[in-house]
Amino acid sequence: MVSPLEQMLIESEARYLKSEELEHLKAYVLGWPKRQHVYRVLRERESQVVSQTLDALQKEMPDLSPPVLDLCRRHLLLLLRHSAMAMLLQDENLLKERLIEWMEEEVRLYGLQRVYEVAYRIFQQELRDHLAPGELEFIRPLITQVQVALLF
């Protein structure tokens, strides 16, 4: 699977880019500073967002075993990191290939559906608390996309 940008390069083999392709490239470059800003914010706050999500999850579901909590922690880190990268590079395929395929199987295998319905609700709230609205809108669609793939 290649990113949309790579796909454009493949399709434009040995010819000039068409106007709409150039526009696409321009939008990608112009959007870069903002995306990079959000990426950095996520990198800085990852630790807080994830540990606070886990704390709240544990309060709401006190019976969760340490291995489940640990799996949950790893999944939240993966979710945040892959979503951040997919956002930065504007490449949603990354999510499917590197994250969703892996997570959905573990969620099924360990029967985590119910836990994750709660975890995602808390996680989305934590993101709202830690990001400005203008930052949140960059990452939220990707998080939601994974949530939908895993829970519905």
């Binding site: 699977m1 990198r43 800085e44 990852e46 630790s47 994830v50 540990s51 340490p66 291995p67 640990d70 790893r74 880190l77 993966l78 990191r81 990354l94 290939e97 590197r98 994250l99 395929e101 892996w102």
Partner: peptide, 23 residues
């Protein structure tokens, strides 16, 4: 970042799909 470690270092990879095609 694996079982039991409380490591949140953003530069330490979280191990998952070794066989992801692009990697």
């Amino acid at each position: 970042i694996s079982n039991g470690s409380v490591n949140f270092d953003p530069y330490t990879p979280v191990l998952a799909n070794y066989y992801a095609p692009s990697a």
